[in-house]
Design a protein around this nucleic acid. Structure first.
Lengths: 149, 149
DNA sequence: GGTATAACATGATATATATCATATTAAGGA
DNA sequence: TCCTTAATATGATATATATCATGTTATACC
Protein backbone atom coordinates (compact mmCIF):
# COMPACT_ATOMS: atom_id res chain seq x y z
CA UNK A 1 0.00 0.00 0.00
CA UNK A 2 1.75 3.10 -1.16
CA UNK A 3 -0.38 5.47 0.80
CA UNK A 4 -1.61 4.01 4.06
CA UNK A 5 -4.65 5.37 5.80
CA UNK A 6 -6.59 5.69 2.64
CA UNK A 7 -10.13 4.83 3.31
CA UNK A 8 -11.45 4.89 -0.22
CA UNK A 9 -10.23 3.44 -3.49
CA UNK A 10 -9.28 5.73 -6.33
CA UNK A 11 -12.41 4.62 -8.09
CA UNK A 12 -14.60 5.72 -5.21
CA UNK A 13 -12.87 9.03 -4.96
CA UNK A 14 -13.26 9.64 -8.67
CA UNK A 15 -16.89 8.64 -8.56
CA UNK A 16 -17.60 10.95 -5.65
CA UNK A 17 -15.93 13.83 -7.42
CA UNK A 18 -17.83 13.19 -10.62
CA UNK A 19 -21.20 12.96 -8.92
CA UNK A 20 -20.50 16.08 -6.95
CA UNK A 21 -19.58 17.85 -10.14
CA UNK A 22 -22.84 16.75 -11.71
CA UNK A 23 -24.73 17.93 -8.65
CA UNK A 24 -23.31 21.38 -9.13
CA UNK A 25 -23.47 21.72 -12.90
CA UNK A 26 -26.10 19.46 -14.37
CA UNK A 27 -29.83 18.99 -14.45
CA UNK A 28 -32.35 17.22 -16.65
CA UNK A 29 -32.01 19.89 -19.32
CA UNK A 30 -28.31 20.31 -19.01
CA UNK A 31 -26.50 17.09 -19.52
CA UNK A 32 -22.75 16.84 -19.42
CA UNK A 33 -20.50 14.68 -21.56
CA UNK A 34 -18.10 12.27 -19.94
CA UNK A 35 -15.22 14.01 -21.63
CA UNK A 36 -16.32 17.34 -20.20
CA UNK A 37 -16.44 15.96 -16.70
CA UNK A 38 -13.02 14.41 -16.96
CA UNK A 39 -11.03 17.60 -17.09
CA UNK A 40 -12.54 19.68 -14.28
CA UNK A 41 -12.38 16.84 -11.79
CA UNK A 42 -8.93 15.83 -12.95
CA UNK A 43 -9.59 12.20 -13.78
CA UNK A 44 -8.62 10.40 -17.02
CA UNK A 45 -11.42 10.45 -19.56
CA UNK A 46 -11.65 6.73 -20.25
CA UNK A 47 -11.57 5.97 -16.58
CA UNK A 48 -14.29 8.34 -15.52
CA UNK A 49 -16.43 7.30 -18.50
CA UNK A 50 -16.45 3.74 -17.28
CA UNK A 51 -17.31 4.75 -13.75
CA UNK A 52 -20.11 7.03 -14.91
CA UNK A 53 -21.60 4.19 -16.89
CA UNK A 54 -21.60 1.97 -13.87
CA UNK A 55 -23.11 4.63 -11.68
CA UNK A 56 -25.79 5.15 -14.28
CA UNK A 57 -26.53 1.45 -14.53
CA UNK A 58 -27.14 1.39 -10.80
CA UNK A 59 -29.38 4.43 -10.83
CA UNK A 60 -27.04 6.68 -8.89
CA UNK A 61 -26.92 9.12 -11.76
CA UNK A 62 -28.94 9.54 -14.97
CA UNK A 63 -27.87 9.50 -18.57
CA UNK A 64 -29.10 9.99 -22.11
CA UNK A 65 -27.60 8.73 -25.33
CA UNK A 66 -27.16 10.52 -28.60
CA UNK A 67 -27.03 14.21 -29.48
CA UNK A 68 -27.46 16.47 -26.50
CA UNK A 69 -27.04 13.41 -24.39
CA UNK A 70 -24.74 13.02 -21.45
CA UNK A 71 -24.90 12.52 -17.72
CA UNK A 72 -26.93 14.44 -15.18
CA UNK A 73 -28.68 14.22 -11.84
CA UNK A 74 -32.41 14.31 -11.40
CA UNK A 75 -34.11 15.09 -8.14
CA UNK A 76 -34.22 11.48 -7.05
CA UNK A 77 -30.52 11.02 -7.79
CA UNK A 78 -29.68 13.90 -5.52
CA UNK A 79 -31.11 12.15 -2.53
CA UNK A 80 -28.71 9.27 -2.65
CA UNK A 81 -26.28 9.01 0.19
CA UNK A 82 -22.55 9.01 -0.38
CA UNK A 83 -22.27 5.45 0.80
CA UNK A 84 -24.39 4.38 -2.17
CA UNK A 85 -21.69 5.59 -4.50
CA UNK A 86 -19.00 3.72 -2.64
CA UNK A 87 -21.08 0.59 -2.65
CA UNK A 88 -21.57 0.66 -6.40
CA UNK A 89 -17.91 1.23 -7.11
CA UNK A 90 -16.13 -0.72 -4.41
CA UNK A 91 -18.69 -3.31 -3.63
CA UNK A 92 -20.83 -3.77 -0.60
CA UNK A 93 -19.04 -6.40 1.39
CA UNK A 94 -18.59 -6.26 5.10
CA UNK A 95 -17.11 -3.05 6.26
CA UNK A 96 -14.50 -4.58 8.50
CA UNK A 97 -15.14 -3.08 11.83
CA UNK A 98 -11.86 -4.50 13.04
CA UNK A 99 -8.58 -2.84 12.18
CA UNK A 100 -6.77 -6.12 12.09
CA UNK A 101 -9.54 -7.89 10.22
CA UNK A 102 -10.09 -10.28 13.09
CA UNK A 103 -13.30 -12.22 12.95
CA UNK A 104 -13.89 -12.43 16.65
CA UNK A 105 -13.22 -8.83 17.44
CA UNK A 106 -16.00 -6.65 18.74
CA UNK A 107 -16.77 -3.99 21.29
CA UNK A 108 -17.13 -6.49 24.09
CA UNK A 109 -13.99 -8.39 23.25
CA UNK A 110 -11.86 -5.92 21.34
CA UNK A 111 -8.49 -6.64 19.83
CA UNK A 112 -5.59 -4.57 21.11
CA UNK A 113 -5.86 -2.07 18.28
CA UNK A 114 -9.57 -1.77 18.39
CA UNK A 115 -9.93 1.35 20.42
CA UNK A 116 -7.30 3.13 18.34
CA UNK A 117 -9.49 3.33 15.29
CA UNK A 118 -12.72 1.41 15.54
CA UNK A 119 -14.89 4.25 16.79
CA UNK A 120 -13.53 6.69 14.26
CA UNK A 121 -14.14 4.52 11.30
CA UNK A 122 -17.63 3.69 12.47
CA UNK A 123 -18.35 7.38 12.72
CA UNK A 124 -16.95 8.04 9.30
CA UNK A 125 -19.08 5.36 7.72
CA UNK A 126 -22.13 6.69 9.48
CA UNK A 127 -21.34 10.11 8.06
CA UNK A 128 -21.22 8.68 4.56
CA UNK A 129 -24.55 7.00 5.17
CA UNK A 130 -26.18 10.11 6.53
CA UNK A 131 -24.95 12.60 3.98
CA UNK A 132 -26.69 13.03 0.64
CA UNK A 133 -25.24 14.32 -2.60
CA UNK A 134 -27.43 17.35 -2.30
CA UNK A 135 -26.21 18.20 1.15
CA UNK A 136 -22.61 18.07 0.04
CA UNK A 137 -23.33 20.30 -2.91
CA UNK A 138 -25.03 22.72 -0.57
CA UNK A 139 -21.86 23.07 1.46
CA UNK A 140 -20.10 24.18 -1.66
CA UNK A 141 -22.77 26.70 -2.50
CA UNK A 142 -22.65 28.05 1.03
CA UNK A 143 -18.88 28.27 0.89
CA UNK A 144 -18.49 25.81 3.67
CA UNK A 145 -16.39 23.73 1.36
CA UNK A 146 -14.27 24.48 -1.67
CA UNK A 147 -13.21 23.37 -5.09
CA UNK A 148 -11.46 22.52 -7.31
CA UNK A 149 -11.98 18.80 -7.35
CA UNK B 1 -10.84 -2.29 -3.44
CA UNK B 2 -12.60 -5.31 -2.15
CA UNK B 3 -12.96 -4.03 1.37
CA UNK B 4 -13.29 -0.31 1.56
CA UNK B 5 -12.51 1.60 4.73
CA UNK B 6 -9.41 -0.36 5.38
CA UNK B 7 -6.81 1.88 6.82
CA UNK B 8 -3.89 -0.51 6.81
CA UNK B 9 -2.49 -2.91 4.25
CA UNK B 10 -2.47 -6.61 4.96
CA UNK B 11 1.25 -6.39 5.41
CA UNK B 12 0.90 -3.77 8.12
CA UNK B 13 -1.75 -5.76 9.89
CA UNK B 14 0.36 -8.88 9.80
CA UNK B 15 3.39 -7.01 11.02
CA UNK B 16 1.47 -5.49 13.90
CA UNK B 17 0.13 -8.87 14.90
CA UNK B 18 3.56 -10.46 14.74
CA UNK B 19 5.23 -7.75 16.78
CA UNK B 20 2.49 -7.88 19.34
CA UNK B 21 2.90 -11.62 19.55
CA UNK B 22 6.63 -11.17 20.12
CA UNK B 23 5.93 -8.58 22.79
CA UNK B 24 3.87 -11.10 24.67
CA UNK B 25 5.91 -14.25 24.20
CA UNK B 26 9.53 -13.44 23.50
CA UNK B 27 12.56 -11.92 25.16
CA UNK B 28 16.31 -11.96 24.67
CA UNK B 29 16.54 -15.47 26.07
CA UNK B 30 13.45 -16.77 24.42
CA UNK B 31 13.55 -16.32 20.69
CA UNK B 32 10.77 -17.48 18.45
CA UNK B 33 11.03 -19.02 15.01
CA UNK B 34 9.22 -17.44 12.12
CA UNK B 35 7.35 -20.67 11.53
CA UNK B 36 6.17 -20.66 15.14
CA UNK B 37 4.83 -17.15 14.87
CA UNK B 38 2.98 -17.88 11.69
CA UNK B 39 0.39 -20.19 13.13
CA UNK B 40 -0.77 -18.36 16.25
CA UNK B 41 -1.22 -15.09 14.42
CA UNK B 42 -2.80 -16.78 11.46
CA UNK B 43 -0.54 -15.54 8.69
CA UNK B 44 1.15 -17.65 6.01
CA UNK B 45 4.64 -18.71 7.04
CA UNK B 46 6.56 -17.46 4.02
CA UNK B 47 4.76 -14.15 4.16
CA UNK B 48 5.39 -13.42 7.80
CA UNK B 49 8.99 -14.57 7.50
CA UNK B 50 9.64 -11.93 4.91
CA UNK B 51 7.98 -9.23 6.97
CA UNK B 52 9.89 -10.21 10.09
CA UNK B 53 13.13 -9.95 8.18
CA UNK B 54 12.28 -6.47 7.06
CA UNK B 55 11.25 -5.39 10.54
CA UNK B 56 14.51 -6.76 11.86
CA UNK B 57 16.56 -4.97 9.25
CA UNK B 58 14.97 -1.71 10.35
CA UNK B 59 15.57 -2.35 14.01
CA UNK B 60 11.92 -2.68 14.96
CA UNK B 61 12.51 -6.19 16.23
CA UNK B 62 15.63 -8.24 16.99
CA UNK B 63 16.82 -11.52 15.55
CA UNK B 64 19.51 -14.16 15.85
CA UNK B 65 20.60 -16.72 13.31
CA UNK B 66 21.45 -20.36 13.82
CA UNK B 67 20.48 -22.81 16.53
CA UNK B 68 18.35 -21.28 19.26
CA UNK B 69 17.98 -18.33 16.99
CA UNK B 70 14.77 -16.62 16.06
CA UNK B 71 13.02 -13.31 16.55
CA UNK B 72 12.44 -11.42 19.76
CA UNK B 73 12.01 -8.00 21.27
CA UNK B 74 14.54 -6.35 23.50
CA UNK B 75 13.74 -3.45 25.79
CA UNK B 76 14.52 -0.85 23.18
CA UNK B 77 12.32 -2.57 20.61
CA UNK B 78 9.40 -2.39 22.96
CA UNK B 79 9.45 1.36 23.00
CA UNK B 80 8.78 1.74 19.31
CA UNK B 81 5.48 3.27 18.40
CA UNK B 82 2.99 1.47 16.22
CA UNK B 83 3.44 3.97 13.45
CA UNK B 84 7.07 2.86 13.11
CA UNK B 85 5.86 -0.57 12.10
CA UNK B 86 3.51 0.83 9.52
CA UNK B 87 6.22 3.04 8.14
CA UNK B 88 8.62 0.17 7.65
CA UNK B 89 6.07 -1.99 5.94
CA UNK B 90 3.95 0.45 3.97
CA UNK B 91 6.40 3.23 3.51
CA UNK B 92 6.51 6.65 4.97
CA UNK B 93 5.01 8.86 2.32
CA UNK B 94 2.60 11.64 3.00
CA UNK B 95 -0.35 10.53 5.00
CA UNK B 96 -2.95 12.04 2.76
CA UNK B 97 -4.87 14.25 5.02
CA UNK B 98 -7.49 14.67 2.30
CA UNK B 99 -10.06 12.00 1.65
CA UNK B 100 -10.20 12.82 -2.02
CA UNK B 101 -6.43 13.12 -2.32
CA UNK B 102 -6.74 16.75 -3.32
CA UNK B 103 -3.55 18.73 -3.14
CA UNK B 104 -5.09 22.01 -2.18
CA UNK B 105 -7.34 20.72 0.53
CA UNK B 106 -6.75 21.77 4.11
CA UNK B 107 -8.55 22.86 7.23
CA UNK B 108 -8.93 26.40 6.01
CA UNK B 109 -10.13 25.47 2.56
CA UNK B 110 -11.57 22.00 2.99
CA UNK B 111 -12.98 19.88 0.21
CA UNK B 112 -16.62 18.89 0.56
CA UNK B 113 -15.76 15.55 2.11
CA UNK B 114 -13.14 16.85 4.43
CA UNK B 115 -15.15 17.16 7.58
CA UNK B 116 -16.61 13.70 7.12
CA UNK B 117 -13.34 11.96 7.84
CA UNK B 118 -10.35 14.23 8.12
CA UNK B 119 -10.46 14.72 11.89
CA UNK B 120 -11.01 11.03 12.54
CA UNK B 121 -8.11 9.89 10.49
CA UNK B 122 -5.84 12.48 12.00
CA UNK B 123 -6.79 11.24 15.44
CA UNK B 124 -6.18 7.66 14.44
CA UNK B 125 -2.73 8.42 13.12
CA UNK B 126 -1.91 10.32 16.27
CA UNK B 127 -2.97 7.29 18.26
CA UNK B 128 -0.60 5.13 16.28
CA UNK B 129 2.17 7.60 16.89
CA UNK B 130 1.51 7.84 20.60
CA UNK B 131 1.09 4.17 21.37
CA UNK B 132 4.07 1.91 21.96
CA UNK B 133 4.30 -1.82 21.48
CA UNK B 134 4.68 -2.21 25.19
CA UNK B 135 1.53 -0.27 25.96
CA UNK B 136 -0.51 -2.41 23.62
CA UNK B 137 0.83 -5.57 25.16
CA UNK B 138 -0.07 -4.18 28.56
CA UNK B 139 -3.69 -3.87 27.53
CA UNK B 140 -3.68 -7.56 26.78
CA UNK B 141 -2.15 -8.43 30.11
CA UNK B 142 -4.67 -6.27 31.89
CA UNK B 143 -7.51 -7.88 29.98
CA UNK B 144 -8.43 -4.61 28.38
CA UNK B 145 -7.98 -6.27 25.02
CA UNK B 146 -8.16 -9.82 23.78
CA UNK B 147 -6.66 -12.43 21.58
CA UNK B 148 -6.43 -14.49 19.44
CA UNK B 149 -4.69 -12.59 16.73
C1' DG C 1 -34.19 6.46 -43.54
C1' DG C 2 -29.48 8.26 -43.10
C1' DT C 3 -26.05 10.41 -40.36
C1' DA C 4 -23.77 12.15 -36.41
C1' DT C 5 -23.58 11.89 -31.53
C1' DA C 6 -22.66 9.91 -27.17
C1' DA C 7 -23.53 6.37 -23.82
C1' DC C 8 -22.91 1.24 -23.24
C1' DA C 9 -20.62 -3.21 -22.94
C1' DT C 10 -16.64 -5.52 -23.03
C1' DG C 11 -12.14 -6.51 -22.74
C1' DA C 12 -7.02 -5.49 -22.97
C1' DT C 13 -2.96 -3.65 -20.60
C1' DA C 14 -0.36 -1.89 -16.75
C1' DT C 15 0.85 -1.44 -12.11
C1' DA C 16 0.59 -2.56 -7.22
C1' DT C 17 0.01 -5.64 -3.61
C1' DA C 18 -0.06 -10.12 -1.74
C1' DT C 19 1.80 -14.62 -1.58
C1' DC C 20 5.16 -18.27 -2.27
C1' DA C 21 9.81 -20.43 -3.01
C1' DT C 22 14.78 -21.00 -2.67
C1' DA C 23 19.67 -20.43 -2.65
C1' DT C 24 22.96 -18.03 0.59
C1' DT C 25 24.97 -16.68 4.94
C1' DA C 26 25.86 -16.73 9.87
C1' DA C 27 25.89 -19.06 14.29
C1' DG C 28 26.03 -22.96 17.58
C1' DG C 29 27.38 -27.45 18.97
C1' DA C 30 29.70 -32.02 18.29
C1' DT D 1 36.21 -28.41 11.06
C1' DC D 2 31.77 -30.22 9.88
C1' DC D 3 26.96 -30.38 10.29
C1' DT D 4 22.63 -28.51 11.51
C1' DT D 5 19.81 -24.64 12.27
C1' DA D 6 17.49 -20.52 11.14
C1' DA D 7 17.60 -15.87 9.48
C1' DT D 8 18.72 -13.18 5.08
C1' DA D 9 18.45 -11.76 0.35
C1' DT D 10 16.35 -12.19 -3.71
C1' DG D 11 13.18 -13.13 -6.90
C1' DA D 12 9.07 -15.66 -8.94
C1' DT D 13 4.05 -16.09 -9.16
C1' DA D 14 -0.65 -14.71 -8.33
C1' DT D 15 -4.27 -11.62 -7.62
C1' DA D 16 -6.33 -7.04 -7.34
C1' DT D 17 -6.74 -2.49 -8.76
C1' DA D 18 -6.11 1.13 -11.95
C1' DT D 19 -5.98 2.65 -16.58
C1' DC D 20 -6.80 2.55 -21.53
C1' DA D 21 -9.12 1.31 -25.97
C1' DT D 22 -12.83 0.00 -29.12
C1' DG D 23 -16.72 -1.96 -31.35
C1' DT D 24 -21.98 -1.71 -30.52
C1' DT D 25 -26.37 0.40 -29.62
C1' DA D 26 -29.75 4.03 -28.91
C1' DT D 27 -31.29 8.79 -29.88
C1' DA D 28 -31.94 13.28 -32.08
C1' DC D 29 -32.13 15.82 -36.14
C1' DC D 30 -32.22 16.54 -41.08
Amino acid sequence: MKTPFQMLSNSSKYALKAVLYLALHSNENNRILAKNISEPINVPKAYIAKLLQELSRHGIISSAKGPHGGFYLNDANRLHSLIDIVHVVDGKQHMESCLLSLEDCNEDKPCPLHKLAGPFRAKFIRNLEDTTIDELALDLKNKKAFLPL
